[in-house]
C-alpha cells in the first residue's frame, strides 16, 4: 500500500487567493458599518427635527422673531430640509457634529471625554464579572447533577431577575447610608471609593447570565465525543474541564460578552444617573432632555461605532478560539 496525500488541503487554501478575496471579510464588515452609521444618523436627524425647532432651543423661549431669523440664517436652518440634511451628512462625513447648544464645546470631543469614564466603568465591571462568573459557570456545568450545584444554580437564577439599578440602590442603602463606608454618589478619577458601588452593581447585573451561559456551554461540551476520547486516553476530570471542555465552551461566553457590552451602553444611562457619574449614559439623558442636537447625534454615532468595534472584536476572538472559522470568509 502506498502512502497517501490528503486532498482536502484546508491549510494551504489561503495561499493562492487574490488580495481582494482575502480583504473581503474586512470590506464586508466596513459595508455593514457604513450601513449602520447611515441608518443611525439619518434616523436621528429626522427624529430630532420632528421633536423641536433647534432655533428655538438656541435662542431661548423669549427670543424675538428677528433674533430667531438671524439664528436660522446663521445656522442654515432657513434652507429646505433636504439641503439641511445633505449639509449635515457632509459634515458628519468629516466627523463634524457642530457645537453643543448648551455649552458651546465641540460635541464630538465632549462625547469622547465622557466616553472615557464610561469605558473605565464598563471595563472594570466586565473584568470583575468574568473573573467571578467563568469559574463558577465552569464548576456548575461540569457535573450539573449534584445538590450543591443545584442550590448555587437556584441562587444564580434568582439573582438573574434583579435589575442592575435595584442592586445599585440596595448597595447604596447598605454600604453608603447604613454603614457609611463608601460615598453614595459622585465621580472622582482618583477616588477609588467612588468606583466600588457602580462597578459592583453593573457586574452583579451581568454575572448571572454569564454564569448560566458558561455553565450550559460547559455542560454541552462535556457531552461531546472528544471528551469521551480524552477520558479514554486517561485525562483526569480537571484536565477534561480545563483543557478540553472549557476552550470550546468559551466560544459562547465570548459572544455573550459582546452582547453584554452593548447592553451596558444602555444600562449605563441608568447606573450613571443613579450615581451622578458623568459618563455618556448620563450625558445621553441630559442632552436628549435639553434637545442638545449636536451632542445627541455625536453620541449616537460614537456608541454605534463602539458597539460595532466590540462586535468585530468578538468576531476576531471567535477566530482565535475556534480554528474552524479561521479559513472561512465572513
Amino acid at each position: 500500500m502506498s502512502t497517501v496525500v490528503d486532498t482536502t488541503g484546508g491549510g494551504g487554501a489561503g495561499a493562492n487567493r487574490s488580495f481582494l478575496a482575502s480583504a473581503m471579510p474586512v470590506l464586508l464588515q466596513l459595508r455593514r458599518l457604513a450601513f449602520l452609521l447611515f441608518f443611525v444618523t439619518t434616523l436621528l436627524f429626522f427624529l430630532l427635527r420632528a421633536a423641536g425647532d433647534p432655533a428655538l432651543v438656541l435662542a431661548g423661549t423669549d427670543a424675538t422673531p428677528e433674533q430667531l431669523a438671524l439664528i436660522r440664517a446663521q445656522y442654515g436652518l432657513d434652507k429646505p430640509l433636504l439641503v439641511q440634511y445633505l449639509n449635515y451628512m457632509w459634515n458628519v462625513l468629516q466627523l463634524d457634529f457642530g457645537k453643543s447648544l448648551a455649552s458651546g464645546e465641540n460635541a464630538l470631543l465632549k462625547v469622547l471625554d465622557m466616553l472615557k469614564r464610561t469605558l473605565h466603568l464598563a471595563f472594570m465591571a466586565m473584568t470583575l464579572s468574568s473573573a467571578i462568573a467563568i469559574p463558577i459557570g465552569a464548576w456548575l456545568g461540569f457535573r450539573p447533577e449534584t445538590l450543591g450545584r443545584r442550590i448555587v444554580g437556584g441562587i444564580v437564577f434568582v439573582f438573574q431577575g434583579i435589575p442592575g439599578y435595584v442592586t445599585a440602590l440596595v448597595l447604596i442603602q447598605f454600604l453608603a447610608v447604613n454603614l457609611r463606608l463608601l460615598p453614595s454618589l459622585g465621580y472622582g478619577p482618583l477616588e477609588w471609593k467612588t468606583w466600588i458601588i457602580p462597578t459592583i452593581s453593573l457586574a452583579f447585573f451581568m454575572m448571572p447570565q454569564l454564569i448560566r451561559v458558561t455553565a450550559a456551554n460547559v455542560a454541552e461540551a462535556m457531552r461531546e465525543d472528544y471528551i469521551r476520547t480524552a477520558r479514554a486516553y486517561g485525562a483526569s476530570p480537571m484536565q477534561l474541564l480545563w483543557r478540553h471542555a472549557l476552550p470550546n465552551a468559551l466560544l459562547g461566553t465570548a459572544a455573550l460578552l459582546g452582547t453584554q457590552f452593548a447592553m451596558m451602553m444602555g444600562g449605563s444611562a441608568i447606573i450613571e444617573t443613579i450615581f451622578s457619574w458623568p459618563g455618556i449614559g448620563w450625558l445621553l439623558l441630559e442632552s436628549t432632555q435639553t434637545l442638545d442636537f449636536p451632542v445627541v447625534q455625536a453620541e449616537a454615532f460614537v456608541i454605534a461605532v463602539l458597539v460595532f468595534l466590540i462586535n468585530a472584536l468578538v468576531d476576531l476572538s471567535f477566530r482565535y478560539l475556534d480554528p474552524r472559522l479561521r479559513n472561512k470568509e465572513a
Partner: peptide, 19 residues
C-alpha cells in the same frame, strides 16, 4: 444586524424623550 449593533435602551431613551 444594524438594530442589534445598537443597544435598544439607548435608542429607546432618545426616542421616548423626543416623542
Amino acid at each position: 444586524d444594524t438594530l442589534q449593533c445598537f443597544p435598544f435602551l439607548v435608542v429607546a431613551i432618545v426616542v421616548v424623550v423626543i416623542i
